[in-house]
Design a protein around this nucleic acid. Sequence first.
DNA 1: ACCGCCGGGTGCC
DNA 2: ACCGCCGGGTGCC
Length: 956
Amino acid sequence: MFSRRWGFGWDTYSELDLFTDRFDTSSETLSQAIRAAASEEPDADGSVLFGHLQGTVVGLRFYTGVVNQGEMVGLVRQPQNPYDRNAVMVSNIFGNQVGHIKRELAAAMAHVMDNNLAKVEGVVHSGTKNSFTMPVMLSFWGQEENKNAVIESLSRRGFKLNSGASKATGASQNSYNQGQGARAYSSKKGLTIPLTADELKNAFDNLFDGLMESKDGEKQAAESVGTPLLPHQKEALSWMCARENKSALPPFWEKRGELYYNILTCFSAKEIPERIRGGILADDMGLGKTLTTIALILTNFHKGKPLPVEKCGERSSPFKAKTKPDMASKLEGSSAGDEAAGSLSSDLPQVEVMDSEDVAVKSEESTSKGKRKATKRQPCKVLLEDLDFAAALGGSAADLGPKKKKNAKKATPTLSEESFISDSAEDLSARTTLILCPLSVISNWLEQFEQHVQADVKLNVYLYYGPERNRNKTFLSSQDVVITTYNVLSADFGNKSPLHGINWLRVVLDEGHVVRNPNAQISKAVLDLKAQRRWILSGTPIQNSVKDLWMLLAFLRLKPFDVKEWWNRVIQRPVTQGDRVGLQNLQTLVKSITLRRTKSSEINGRPLVSLPEKTVCVEQVELSQTEREEYELARNEGRNTIGRYVAEGTVLRNYADVLAILMRLRQHCCHPDLLAKTSSDLGAAATPAELRERLIEKLRLVLASGSDEECSVCLESVHLPVITHCAHVYCRPCIAQVISSEQEKSRCPLCRSEIKANELVEFPQEKMEEEKCANPDRWRSSSKVQALMGNLLRLRCEDSSIKCLVISQFTRFLTILETPLREQGFTFVRLDGTMSQKKRTQVIQEFQSSAADSPSIMLLSLKAGGVGLNLTAASHVYLMDPAWNPATEEQCIDRCHRLGQTRNIFVTKFIVKDSVEENMVKIQKQKQDLVDKAFGSTNTGRKTSRVDDIKALMEL
DNA sequence: ACCGCCGGGTGCC
DNA sequence: ACCGCCGGGTGCC
């Protein structure tokens, strides 16, 4: 029999057995089979239990598959079975066949399964008494609407489904009853109370928290790592090395006597289950996942030895091309549009016959003309490197080869020989680490390799990207590192992909959470890679739900969860249905393969990353007499209006008005020119023209604010903004769709007022022009501008090398600030949301530069200063106006208060005394975001507090 | 003897 | 193989 040849164990054939028909001789690959099975699989969410049925498994004596008491089994249709086209095969978790479902029952099940009316799951509760048949408890799951059809179909063939209420969902129930080894399961109290939605959400949010314990100590990085690792990075490195080298049991397995037992599925095996060589490094951004990974590549080659690298000094190489062309030019021309281009370039005809000499020549050629080459790519030294490699293993080159299984020499003294996995399981010829990442971080990887690898070490890094990429497998697998994007990988996939033909030493998914949808082409391409070790780097491994985790586990090949059925049965469904044991299991699972530290984590009682000190101070700004008068005027006007709304109880209905009033006051605090020139009162509109004028005014306020106005339909920043008669702002396409999709009257998604397509008001083009050339000749100052300029001038006197961030929510305020900055001879750059990605990168590079003539100030719009920006050149931050949400401010400050910052940080917040700004700061303390409350929930309690907030803001 | 009963052969789908 | 089923041997008690 086909499968027997391979013996017993976690071999890949097991899934093959599960998903391919054993009588089908066509050579379907394992991954194709898994993919096929996965895509057909109905989503487990929303499935309900139809009921249970006791069935019989027959033919046990013909198969090797063994089942323990309480073990879950898989049921697989075999339509091609020559004896019975209704056959249903029974297999254990390994995929080993156990037997068949008895003929009559199989006929009934086949109908249900083939028509996708239900999924059938099996658990063997009681052990078999003989070696020929055994009972199996079958449970039928599916969409509610199919329930009756299933019951009827079964009863037509004489099988009655027991109500689903009494029995539990599967082996998990059984396993905690079994006690021993089931640890936490025996805490029976609370088991029956399902988790509430809130508890569940909370548990998800915290799923990756508190995973920082790593008992592997701090591993010393290889000499070739040029940057000293921080303690937490050493800890991560040793954890990663241990996960790659040590043969600890995978989660949920334990040794019981001579057998290895899975406490979740109750499967047991004589042989040690293959552990996961890899895992998830889920550290927060900025903790150095990239550096740690580079250190791993250099430190942990085969058998715990460092990667054998060539030192430039030792072998004086005439090709030593250590000069670093700048990254921009390297990636030049390789825009996102090129991503698909890989499929266009045909394979080089000589691919297979190339020997190492040819590779060398070839690569040199392409280096000279190809801009996309990694900088360190050198003429290949395949043979020499193999000698190095052999030496690293402690044997001669002749020892290399699959037949030679014996250890030539002891590995590192720190780890005992048996802690490494046996040679037979490890292909020692694999050399290369493949790094997959989104296009946007490729340059980061290249930079980091440049930066963190010892200068005299020659590491072969190849950037597999662009239409002229070298698709030669021999060439690629002789590299130390190959970097490519997910898009290139998926473009190659199924198209003689060289990446899929290589047995990688290691595959690293950077920003691994981007690979989430298992049906996506990218996911399939990723799952199909062959590798000995697999890593996922991600700051946010779960984006939305538990579902996201499956892809990660499947990539890591964490048996048995890489097969979706087992994942669904054991984890996903129990957890989504609020089962506490399921959640515990999920937590255990995640914990066993993940290392996550946050910036606030501590190591040995000390913070993970010790950033320079940050001092925050508030500078009160006194308005001038004229400013004060104008402000009080506007405030009294606003107070009257809002007071009226409060008295009428219509604050929420007029929320846009309220926000507009507040906005105006906030603008008063910054600069008078931020305000509309025509101040419109907020009474009831007398004429349609007046109403229109007023709406345009409100829209102008919203747009001019530069604050994070988002469309409540698409939840993105508003694009082609329009304002409704009820004064809510949306993207035109979004609201147009809302209107057209409603049958009769369409209503505003925010306030439920009736809205009409022809009443949507957009900002008139001529006004737009006016806005742009708003009298630059008549520039005037304001108290806040003066306050800032005073600070900047003083600072320049003290230390002209200091760089500053000047942050405002109002992009127009930034514009206003440009004039005095220029007058005082400051060099500055500006970064706001309107700039293209390319322009941003350029501006950031300029600002970060330490050149003498580099800009000393960056004008930054609050919204543009979101995550990811690295502005460590700055050490002083000026927040010109308070934000509704203090977290946004923090995020902005963190752009410079992050890894790589050497100076102490000084933050100055300008707050106008006796103004709405002061009140905003008070409200900030209740950490709820006012805007969140406005648009987020319909909860009435919250709405009340929103009104309270507004009253507090206006001192009503 | 067109049954019943006994005991050996046999056995998944 | 401690069952069911099949089919041949057998046949008062």
